[in-house]
């Protein structure tokens, strides 16, 4: 009789690198992780490459952001993957937005206002407290699917949550002197971050969600930046950097390379906490310099 059988690792597919990073924190070496969207990619517009079907076919767990983040590409892939473990409602399907207090849920659905998200703004994971909720989801599901390793997952969860708590204090202190400061970004992808850290990211280079900037809109942004003395522009890796550079040239503002995903900006490959570290520090630096 065999004394020890090699336990097959749980195969987890995460749609985005931030989710993948949290799965790594909780699952550690007990899970194999495949991440679909690349760090610099816009999570709304991922090419549904057929190789993803193969990854989803083999998956024990699918971790998705939900709230329509992946609505443009994930459903067709899951349909083709023929995997009962990850279909909607299966224990292996983790929809991370569940349990998160969503912001900006529109009262009416009207596309003349641009691309809107019926379930609210889906970029919630950039708030560290939401990352803790998501980590809890992941831990609970991993425990359910692999009860014998549950203690490990739970202690990993505790470690991650504690790390977030300690870091959150540090981050808040760093940004406290700049409370209430306004920041420009391209897309409205930072409401959760601004709420958590008391800054205001409420002026956007695109006139409406999904509609590219027009010169008249940019002119308005520039004049608002001047009158409100806004000195920082956050730039996502997948946007046209020239637009932000133009706005910066007219206003003397500082560009801060920002990303929602670990690895989206150089030096954030280490994971979620490193990404937040980077974002908070570079913002504080930009505020301080401006």
């Amino acid at each position: 009789m065999l004394t020890h059988s090699v336990q097959a690792k749980l195969e987890v597919v995460a749609t985005t690198p931030d989710l993948g990073s949290i799965v790594r924190e909780i699952g550690g070496d007990l899970v194999e992780i495949e991440i679909l969207a690349r760090p610099k990619e816009d999570a709304h517009f991922v090419s549904a490459r057929p190789s993803f079907i193969v990854k989803l076919n083999k998956a024990d767990v699918l971790v998705e952001g939900g709230a329509e983040l992946e609505i443009g590409w994930l459903p067709a892939l899951v349909d083709q993957a023929r995997n009962r473990k990850i279909v909607s409602g299966a224990p292996g399907r983790i929809v991370c937005s569940q349990g998160v207090q969503m912001l900006e849920i529109p009262a009416t659905l009207d596309r003349s206002r641009g691309d809107i998200h019926a379930a609210g703004n889906p970029h919630y994971l950039i708030d560290p407290l939401n990352a803790k909720i998501v980590a809890e989801h992941i831990s609970a599901t991993l425990c359910e699917l692999e009860p014998q390793s549950c203690a490990t997952f739970e202690s990993n969860l505790k470690r991650f949550s504690n790390a977030i708590d300690i870091k959150l204090n540090e981050w808040r202190n760093l940004l406290k002197p700049y409370s209430g400061r306004r920041v420009v970004s391209y897309h409205n992808s930072w409401p959760y971050f601004s709420k958590r850290f008391g800054i205001r990211v409420d002026l956007f280079l695109e006139p409406k969600p999904g509609i590219p900037p027009s010169p008249s809109h940019l002119a308005e942004v520039v004049s608002q930046m001047k009158s409100d003395k806004i000195t920082v522009i956050m730039v996502d890796p997948y946007i046209n950097r020239r637009t932000a550079e133009t706005a910066a040239r007219f206003t003397g503002a500082t560009l801060v390379d920002a990303a929602q995903f670990p690895g989206g900006v150089k030096g954030t490959e280490g994971g979620y906490i490193q990404l937040l570290d980077y974002l908070v520090n570079s913002l504080a630096k930009a505020f301080g310099g401006g």
Partner: peptide, 28 residues
């Protein structure tokens, strides 16, 4: 926030008043 029970938090429904538009059925 420190110790959330997975899936136990439900988004608080915003109160509706007659002057607001009636929400439509959401995708999904």
């Amino acid at each position: 926030a420190t110790a959330p029970a997975a899936g136990s938090q439900v988004a608080r429904p915003s109160t509706w008043s007659p002057s607001q538009p009636i929400p439509v059925i959401r995708a999904g």
